[in-house]
C-alpha cells in the first residue's frame, strides 16, 4: 500500500481504500478523503452506516439472483409481473437498467457473468442450471447479455439449452442509440444497425 502521507497512516489507509473503487483514481480519492474529513461527523457516520446496513441487508434473490432485501425479491413475487416472460441478464445492475425503461413487465434471471473459458467461467460458474429449472411455465426468454464475444457465446449457449424445451428464445436488438445523430455513429454500430434493420 502506497501511503500518501507517512505521518497520517489512517488517512493513507482511507486513500488506499477509496482508490480501489471503480472509476476512482488517485486524484479523486484524495478529494473524497479530504471531503470525508471535512464534513460534520454525523454525515460521515451516516455514510458508514449506509454502507454497513446495505452490506448486511442486501442479498441475492434465491429465484432470480437479482439484488434484494427480501427473499424472493419483489419482482419475483409480484403477481402483476408476467411469469411467462423472462429476461436473462449478466449482472444485477443490468436489472436496474431494464427496470428503468418501465416497459418490461416480465421477470428476470441474473446469470452472474458470461461464459469466459479464458477467465475460467463455464456454465457451472453461472446460474444456468436454475435457469433451466425455471423453464417450465416460461414461454419466451429474452437474452439480454452484452453484445461482445462472451455475451454472444453465452446467448448461443443458452439458446441451445432452452430451445429444445419448447421456449421461444429472442435476443436484444443492437444498433443506433436513440436521440443520437447518425452523423456521429461509429461504423461498427452503424453496420450492426443496418444488419438489424426492420420494416416500418
Amino acid at each position: 500500500m502506497r501511503l500518501a502521507s507517512p505521518w497520517l497512516p489512517a488517512f493513507g489507509r482511507l486513500l488506499a481504500s477509496l482508490e480501489r473503487l471503480p472509476g476512482v483514481g488517485p486524484k479523486s480519492a484524495r478529494r473524497l478523503a479530504h471531503h470525508l474529513l471535512a464534513v460534520p461527523p454525523p454525515q460521515a457516520e451516516e455514510l458508514l452506516e449506509a454502507i454497513r446496513s446495505c452490506r448486511e441487508r442486501t442479498i441475492s434473490c434465491s429465484v432470480c439472483h437479482a439484488l434484494t432485501e427480501a427473499d424472493p425479491c419483489p419482482i419475483c413475487t409480484d403477481p402483476a409481473r408476467d411469469e411467462r416472460l423472462l429476461a436473462v441478464v449478466e449482472a444485477p445492475s443490468d436489472v436496474d437498467v431494464l427496470e428503468r425503461t418501465r416497459e418490461f413487465r416480465g421477470r428476470y434471471h441474473v446469470l452472474g457473468g458470461a461464459l469466459s473459458p479464458l477467465r475460467g467461467v463455464g456454465p457451472d460458474e453461472l446460474h444456468v442450471a436454475d435457469l433451466v429449472q425455471r423453464a417450465p411455465g416460461v414461454e419466451e426468454v429474452i437474452l439480454a447479455t452484452n453484445p461482445n464475444v462472451e455475451g454472444e457465446a453465452t446467448a448461443l449457449y443458452l439458446a441451445r439449452r432452452l430451445k429444445p424445451l419448447g421456449i421461444r428464445v429472442t435476443r436484444l436488438g443492437f444498433g443506433l442509440p436513440v436521440g443520437a445523430s447518425i452523423e456521429f455513429a461509429d461504423e461498427v454500430t452503424m453496420s450492426r444497425s443496418l444488419a438489424g434493420r426492420r420494416e416500418v
Binding site: P117, E152, A153, Y157, R160
Partner: peptide, 25 residues
C-alpha cells in the same frame, strides 16, 4: 472466440455445448 475455444479444447473433458457456442461466434 478462437482463444476461448482453444482453452475449452484443452479442458478434459471439453464441454461440447460451450464449445459449440464459441464456434457459433
Amino acid at each position: 472466440a478462437r482463444a476461448a475455444k482453444t482453452r475449452l479444447l484443452g479442458a478434459d473433458p471439453a464441454d461440447p455445448a460451450a464449445l459449440s457456442a464459441f464456434e457459433g461466434v
